[in-house]
Design a protein around this nucleic acid. Structure first.
Lengths: 244, 244
DNA sequence: CGCGAGATTGACTGAGTTCAATAATCGTGG
DNA sequence: CCACGATTATTGAACTCAGTCAATCTCGCG
């Protein structure tokens, strides 16, 4: 039997839930599906009616443009709600691939409907958290549109570590990226060659350290300055939502 | 007295509403505020608790990076819900400026709470439409990260005209952009000089025509091809939402 | 008519790409 | 546990798209 809900746990980082809400959210995670690293969870343009909560592991979403180039849209962590575009489109606009061996909990959008109908506070919360996603995306947009290669790498690394910290208090300054340099490039609009140059430069400057796949941020303050980075995950203010 | 709700009208482009829902939405637009072209509606980093429905005119949101460069995040049209980041942040992450003389309807986020609590179907609808915004942003992300200057201009123009068409059936192939070339550049991550080069090139190739501020798309098919553009506004499928 | 914002154009520069070759690492089967 | 094939990382050199700088032009408006 499932012990708890990853998604509820995430929401409770921001606002307390009551027992009924917690139970309702846990129901979304009743079905668990293991996916191996590299496996495609959802393919762009396939007909879908499922969405997912990511329970373990790591997932990315991307699109492939007609010329073959790839834009990675987002990297997801446990507790994230993914594939939500299927709530409005019958054909998936993006591909979902596991970056590490993962566990996803699929559920039909009809299941979401029941949740939204019966737990308006959860509906409000989900609407509100989708705003946080929106702001994160606009930050990326500014990063891609208006900052240098080095700034993009810095902002990307900071974004990842901040999001990991939301769910895992143990993380201090070191984390596993689980992305190749080519994937980093596809996320921030650079070639793998240039990502490499930036990464080595930052390493040479003592901003980061690398060993195996893991990265240590040696000077977060400086990195934030270089990347024009603003943390959008810790300062959420949800007091105005209905009480539990 | 207010005749109707711009926002409700927009929602009904996607799904029918009942009388009570319509009335509740109209309440969000009870207060109307006129803003002149160029006026700042909300300033980044100011403390805010208001959000807005745009009733008439046109508004843009942007951020200014520390080096002074600007990234325009989104252009808004009548019926759009703007400034929604104030639902989670007490300090505005972005600036809102009127691109034309406009009418916005401000309301406190507490007002949103009442709406979300009492009309779960509206809450669901708002959550779901925020997904459409998200997908639009990811399309822009792919555009900025992975496509050429010409492709970005093409995609940008197509995006604007498609969004105008959602609310205004009269629009065929001509529209007023109400943006300078510098602003277009700030929206798609280019300089005004290069936007100019692309625009003239596209004009010379017979893809668009310009007169005064208005633009005519002469070959939408070709433009969509160049810009790798996908229309995300007409194919929404919301059947699974609770019935009215 | 003159002013000022925006558009246009040309010459030059440079950040990031492309191409290509080599080195390091990883996963896997024997 | 090790060798081998396949990714992934690293580096150099040439190239190119878009940026920068700066001058000129256009047009709406007081």
């Amino acid at each position: 039997m499932v012990t708890g809900s990853c998604f509820a746990e995430r929401l409770e980082k921001h606002i307390p839930l009551n027992e009924a809400e917690r139970r309702a959210l846990a129901r979304l995670e009743e079905t668990q599906r293991k996916v191996k690293r590299g496996a495609v969870i959802q393919r762009a343009n396939d007909i879908v009616s499922e969405l997912f909560v990511l329970r373990h592991g790591r997932v990315m979403s991307y699109v492939i443009l007609p010329d073959g180039s790839r834009q990675i849209l987002r990297v997801y962590f446990p507790g994230d709600f993914i594939g939500s575009a299927s709530t409005i489109y019958s054909k998936a606009p993006e591909t979902l691939v596991a970056l590490a061996d993962s566990v996803v909990c699929p559920f039909d959008k009809k299941g979401l409907r029941v949740l939204l109908e019966e737990y308006p506070r959860v509906a409000a919360l989900m609407f509100v958290l989708s705003q946080a996603e929106r702001v994160a995306l606009t930050d990326r947009l500014a990063s891609l549109g208006r900052t240098s290669a080095k700034a993009r790498v810095a902002a990307f690394l900071l974004d990842i570590i901040h999001r990991l910290r939301v769910m895992d208090d143990d993380i201090t300054d070191t984390f596993d990226l689980k992305l190749t340099q080519e994937e980093i490039g596809d996320a921030i609009g650079l070639t793998s060659v240039h990502v490499n140059r930036m990464v080595r430069q930052m390493e040479a400057e003592g901003l980061i350290r690398r060993s195996n796949g893991s990265i240590t941020l040696l000077n977060e303050k400086k990195l934030a300055e270089i990347g024009h980075y603003t943390d959008r995950y810790t300062e959420l203010n949800l007091d105005w939502l209905p009480a539990a």
